[in-house]
Write a protein that binds this DNA or RNA. Structure first.
Lengths: 210, 210
DNA sequence: CCGCTATTTAATCATTTGATTAAAATAACT
DNA sequence: AGTTATTTTAATCAAATGATTAAATAGCGG
């Protein structure tokens, strides 16, 4: 089998080339619309190689999905659980991180959300979603804020919906937004940069609104 | 051809049955993942009928897409252009309308956004997106608000991103939200009902935030 | 009832597409 | 160089799938 890695001293392994290609194509077209041949072409390899390295389209997809998912939620996990930063700082950091991430990879959220709908339970529970938020240091700070009267008492999931909605949605709906606002790609990116500082202010105004 | 409708005195026309079925299946699975056979089965008709009434899968899809799109933006158009309602009232009405619409049809936004990415230009320009917002009565009110100092001076597209983000995104990302917040379907719907009154308040707080 | 048209069906095609296989090429190692 | 293991290729398969065709059925005016 493929135990020996010393073969490819040059460049990247064929396996990695395939994974990178698969990532690009899957992200852009989703599972059903991508042909294994598309991936092979993108990777510059023969179709059979794909089935040689990964047993099937499904298997390859699962790997890409898993990694994309982890990549996406890694930042969320880390920031929410940092016990050295304030609530305000967490908001700023999250917004900044995600706007940067999505400006560079605008296809990821729609990809994830689509494929999550295909089988919600498996991936959601596997990622330990519940723990990410509800058992985070952030939640403690949020509750504290409520107790002290600094934060209006509402379900923290509303907060996440607002933060993610304002941050992520514009990327998902970018064609609509560009259409509505008559924006060029450059205009759009500029607006998103502005939002790095705007969204935290808006969120903080919300937190105090009762 | 199919000029005579007197045949089907009962129930709905076969053509309508197919369209309804297509709408359901396309909304749920998207273009690539739906098989024409799925639609035929859902409609309770023979596969060949689908190609008899609509010449191809593409043609049928284009019709469904067109109607879904119009259905979705109808409310937006009307509300934004109503010259008898206040800014605040428009916000409330939009949030209420869309939360009701999406509670009943949660699959629509992801469907639209997916297929919009497949060919943005055609549909966006066809819908007259630019006019919907930038030439609306709403925009005049928004500018007025800025002049009077009641509204902070930022690009109104930010406002749309926030409104739609906070309203629509939770439905698109419902599996994630349910996971993060450990919510049952019922819990989720209850939260969304709460948001009908929360979002307008948050938006108004944002409008004043500078 | 007859003849005509619209509708519906069953059977079949042609293409696409995921997967496999056997052979060739390449690298690794002695 | 010779031998073995690994990687890559070309050719092919089988199933899925969109589409077509020709025949059957049903409604309707005369």
């Amino acid at each position: 089998m493929k135990t020996n890695k010393t073969k490819h001293i040059n460049d990247t392994t064929t396996e990695v080339k395939i994974k990178n290609a698969a990532s690009i194509v899957f992200h852009k077209k989703g599972f059903s619309a991508t042909r294994t041949r598309d991936i092979a072409e993108e990777a510059g390899i023969n179709l059979a190689l794909l089935n040689y390295y990964f047993r099937s389209k499904e298997k390859l997809f699962d790997i890409i999905m898993q990694e994309s998912m982890q990549g996406f939620f890694k930042s969320l996990k880390e920031v929410l659980n940092n016990d050295k930063t304030s609530l305000e700082n967490k908001i700023e950091t999250l917004v900044n991180n995600y706007i940067d991430l999505l400006t560079a990879n605008p296809d990821i959220p729609l990809f994830l959300l689509n494929e999550l709908r295909r089988n919600p339970d498996k991936l959601i529970s596997k990622m330990g979603m519940k723990e990410i938020l509800m058992e985070s240091y952030f939640i403690k700070q949020f509750q504290q804020g409520i107790k002290k009267g600094m934060v209006a008492p509402f379900n923290p999931i509303h907060f996440m919906m607002n933060l993610m909605g304002m941050t992520i949605f514009p990327f998902i709906a970018s064609p609509v937004m560009k259409g509505l606002g008559d924006l060029s790609d450059k205009n759009f990116d500029e607006l998103m940069m502005q939002r790095k500082s705007l969204i935290p202010k808006w969120i903080e105004a919300q937190l105090k609104t009762k």
